[in-house]
């Protein structure tokens, strides 16, 4: 049976399949939104950029 032919089964299950599809799209959107929110929460974190990070280098003794 060619895949393009619409079977009675496809028509009857359209609503259910659409519901599942929308649920999956919604879930992906939530995971994406949550990721953005979590990254925004941790805004103060620094990425590795191949240079010494000032915030983690110990303070230099002035020798007085």
């Amino acid at each position: 049976m060619p895949i393009t032919e619409t079977h009675d089964l496809h028509k009857r299950r359209f609503g259910r399949n659409l519901g599942v599809a929308l649920s999956l799209v919604g879930f992906a959107a939530i995971v994406f939104g949550l990721t953005v929110a979590k990254i925004r929460e941790g805004a103060s974190m620094e990425a590795f950029d191949h240079t010494p990070r000032v915030s983690i280098t110990p303070p230099v003794e002035t020798g007085q």
Binding site: M1, H7, D8, L9, R12, R13, G15, R16, L18, G19, V20
Partner: peptide
């Protein structure tokens, strides 16, 4: 495919579950 068709026809007669039934 034949099996599937027979099965679903029988099921449709008694009312197949829609998305709302799972909700």
């Amino acid at each position: 495919m034949t099996d599937l068709t027979t099965n679903t026809t029988a099921k449709a007669a008694e009312g197949e579950a829609g998305f709302g039934d799972y909700i």
